[in-house]
Simulated assay, not measured.
Amino acid sequence: MDDRRVAVVVEDDDDIRGLMVALLGQSGFEVHEASNGTDGVRAVRDYDPILVTVDLGLPDFDGYEVTRQVRQFTDAYVVMLTARGEEIDTLLGLDAGADDYLTKPFRPRVLRARIEAMLRRPRGGSTAAPAVPAPPTNAPVRENSGGAVPTASNEKPVQIDRHLSLDGLELYPTVHQVVAEGREVPVTPTEFLLLETLMLSGRVVRSKAELSRVIRGDAPDNGTFVSLADERTVEVHLGNLRRKLKDDPKTPRWVQTVRGVGYRMASSPQDVR
């Protein structure tokens, strides 16, 4: 993961923005601030942060639109902050591409803990893998050594150490890239982490609670409490991932729901090697 701790705070309330700048500065971040969506998107583009906090209610356009715009060019972790506590607001925030969602008022230590948990996850350019057991010998995923990531015709291919392959779905941890049937699929850091976890697990079913812990940066089986809201967050992230992959949950090619249990990678005749 990039060692640079740069953050952008997009918040129109002066007091809250000042609190966020101070809080993140005390946590070792170089902090840049913006009071509206337009300046916020520009700041993210200019400073290339690892973390972006976005207020939902902004004077020009809302935090959902800020998140959608920055997701077009960055894999920074995005935390949405809002006074709204309804589930639909949380779902809309995650659907726009946010990695986490925190309702105001919040305790500074809670925000700090959530941010540090995100920073422990693998991110673009990282070769680290989530803490999950190796897949069983009959798992459908192949781990390939060597090769180059597909790129546009005018770009030099990027050499990589390994990638994961499953029936036309390719995942490249080194460069944080997902390719489905030759089509590059833009995913958020959280979506990438969930897909990598499931691919490494093969046919082993991962529960929503286990996947929630992986998102936090914990071991999936450490037994820490997972709320219904946390499990719902996993559902939304995987729903977004499936939509981007164009993977129909009714007839899944890649991500399969095991009703009442969790998720695993789907099998097919081509998966048996």
Results as ranks from 00 to 15, higher is better:
P173K: 07
V234S: 02
Y77L: 12
L81Q: 06
I115N: 09
G262D: 04
T103A: 00
T188D: 03
K208F: 13
I160E: 06
D46E: 15
E191M: 08
T233G: 03
D95V: 02
D167E: 13
R273W: 14
H237W: 02
Q270H: 15
V141I: 12
R45G: 02
T197W: 12
H163E: 10
D248N: 13
Y101Q: 01
D75A: 05
L92P: 00
D13G: 06
D218Y: 14
L23N: 07
R112C: 03
D247L: 09
Q177S: 14
P133E: 01
Y101W: 06
T67R: 04
R253C: 08
L166P: 05
R112D: 00
L241P: 00
L194Q: 03
L51V: 09
Y263H: 10
R68I: 11
L19G: 08
L169T: 04
G37I: 03
D15C: 01
D46S: 09
D14I: 10
L194A: 00
T137D: 14
D161N: 10
S35I: 11
P157V: 13
R45V: 03
D13V: 15
V149T: 00
E231T: 09
N154F: 11
F29S: 07
D62A: 12
A266Q: 07
F61H: 12
I215K: 14
A76F: 13
V178F: 08
R253S: 12
R71G: 12
R243K: 11
S227F: 12
I50F: 03
V261M: 07
T103L: 00
H32K: 13
V10E: 13
K156E: 15
I215H: 08
L56K: 12
L164D: 01
T127M: 10
H32W: 15
L228M: 04
L24D: 01
R243Q: 15
R107C: 08
E155F: 03
S165N: 07
R84K: 05
T190A: 09
V10M: 09
D12L: 09
A139F: 01
L58G: 11
T151W: 06
P130I: 06
R121P: 01
A129H: 07
G239V: 03
V6I: 15
R68G: 05
N222D: 15
A229Q: 08
H163Y: 15
D89S: 14
T74I: 10
A98N: 01
F225R: 12
V6E: 14
